[in-house]
Design a protein around this nucleic acid. Sequence first.
RNA 1: GGAGAGGUGGCAGAGCGGUCGAAUGCGGCGGUCUUGAAAACCGCUUUGCUCGCAAGGGCAACGGGGGUUCGAAUCCCUCCCUCUCCGCCA
Length: 424
Amino acid sequence: MLELTFLREHRDETEARLAKRNIDAKGLIEHAIELDGVRRSTQTELDGTQAELNALSRSVGELMKGGKKEEAEAAKAKSAALKDGIARLKERLEASEKSLQDHLVTIPNAPNAKVPPGSTPEENTVVMQEGAIPELGPNAKPHWELGEEYGFLHMDLGVKLTGAGFPVYSGQGARLQRALIAFFLDKATEAGYREIIPPHMVNAASAFATGQLPDKEGQMYHATVDDLYLIPTAEVPITNLYRDEIIDADKLPIKNVGYTPCFRREAGSYGAHVRGLNRVHQFDKVEIVRVEKPENSYAALEEMVEHVKGLLRALELPYRQLLLCGGDMGFSSAMTYDMEVFSAAQQRWLEVSSISNFETFQTNRLKLRYRGEDKKPRLAHTLNGSALALARIVAALIENNQGPDGIRIPKALQPYTGFTLITK
RNA sequence: GGAGAGGUGGCAGAGCGGUCGAAUGCGGCGGUCUUGAAAACCGCUUUGCUCGCAAGGGCAACGGGGGUUCGAAUCCCUCCCUCUCCGCCA
């Protein structure tokens, strides 16, 4: 959620930044300012009336003590009218706060100045590309065929147990998952991230604070009996660790990493391009999450990108870095890089990481602040990125490394898998 | 799941209908003293909203919500959470 005071004081800037998303920025902001005006005038009026009543109540106490019974009764009678007014004003204030809130929640984050305008993935910028794209020849198979052939991935069993999009890994496939998770966690720990094992379900307040609610309600699995949500990413619980906190400036930056399974309903996305592991309802992901001072957050973003690049290089995967255009960015993000690996058998790029700076968009909802040099609490910046998301990494890894003898495991991963080749 | 106890400031812990945003202690910050440090002493030490150019005001918050009252941290209702005991259980 955008900061109201910032929006008020930097109206033109916010409008210009927001316009990159190809939405009616002017209209959205105008309406917000208007609703805020109503809220503020109501607040002022209510405060004044409440002050009057407070003074009156105090005088009643003093009159009683002084034995002036009649005067006290007169004051009591006077307070009735004030109370009426206060009740009405409170209602009005609540209503105006609610309409303001309801409106603010519909405004996406304002993109950073560097973000290219645009509305489709075609308008994203390719920042860089690295790694040789393997020539597999005509007999190359997509990962879902390889998985079946080698017997380590079973989409059909997942259907039996749960439904489409819930893969079952077995044998070397299961071990490969575990190896990747351990490898990613170790690399993040080396880079100074603290490992977190969070709950895999969160309450509505947490889902709201990181922006899953109300914006992406339909994307999450909802356990209605207890009103809990299955996390779509570790970002949700890990970022919410700091909800309602004021952190001393010298404690920043905070760098956390967590592995969790991720659950996404992905309602309405079916077809050939989502076969196999390309898009599933449950996948494993190692996520890095940072809390930063505003002046450092963009340097942190680049640092996170470098970290992810290191992982992709170690896995010997051809990859590229995309700077998302305004219209393709997530609702809460101010700037997002996507990392994609090339899946040689499918001849397409697969998104395996999304690294974003949310600036104060999340912390405003989280009420996550830090105390700077001036001792005043200010909203911190939050960032997060996948490092990395497993299912598609596995897809690309096994497709790109298929050969006549089996599927080759990259060197960096071999200490973790305990084998160098996936065989039949 | 059953029974009981309790939720107050960074922490500990008072307050149990009025002047209590809240005693006191600890911690933290600033100062005095000291060659320096410690001790001692003095002062300061929550957050949000709002009015104001500012100085400085006002309002709200004692787990959440509602109620009683001229007035609630204090009384009542309700929800949530924590702890103890019992039951169940990886």
